[in-house]
């Protein structure tokens, strides 16, 4: 079988790594947020080219269909990365709140008060 789930996974990880690096190169993804994705791509690639390793893990965990170890890995990684994103989001949310407050106070202090005339 030339085209199997491992081949698919290898192709996907390579394409994925290329996309990530391209995004960083074009400054559309910050280096610090790309690190975890690059790690993901490399780990998925490593797992995909060593089916024997996957099968060993599957036997160890009593998983009947070995390639589902790949899916399990992908799922867990995405959940963890999502958590990471919400931590980043929370920090930014606090920073935006603070900026909002400081700007309002600064506007009052400089007398550069323009009321929000949205009505």
């Amino acid at each position: 079988m030339i085209f199997n789930v491992y081949m698919l996974s290898i192709a996907f990880s390579i394409l994925f790594l290329i996309i990530i690096i391209e995004l960083v190169r074009k400054n559309r993804l910050l280096e610090k947020y790309s690190l975890l994705w690059i790690l993901f791509g490399i780990m998925l690639l490593a797992l995909s080219i060593t089916p024997a390793f996957i099968e060993a893990i599957a036997r160890l965990m009593d998983i009947k269909y070995a390639p589902s170890v790949l899916f399990l890995f992908g799922m867990v990684y995405v959940v963890i990365y999502n958590l990471h994103i919400t931590v980043v989001l929370s920090k930014q949310s606090q920073q935006i709140t603070r900026l909002n407050q400081e700007i309002a106070i600064l506007k009052e202090k400089t007398g550069d008060f323009k009321t929000n005339d949205k009505a």
């Binding site: 909002n100 407050q101 700007i103 309002a104 506007k107 009052e108 009321t115 929000n116 949205k118 009505a119």
Partner: peptide, 27 residues
């Protein structure tokens, strides 16, 4: 502290001669 009001809360308060801090958006 005008919390990003969309009405004239800030203007009304200013007219009363008090300090008004107006947040750019609602917090």
């Amino acid at each position: 502290v005008d919390d990003g009001s969309t009405d004239s809360t800030a203007q009304v308060a200013l007219k009363e001669g008090v300090k008004v801090v107006s947040l750019p958006f609602n917090l």
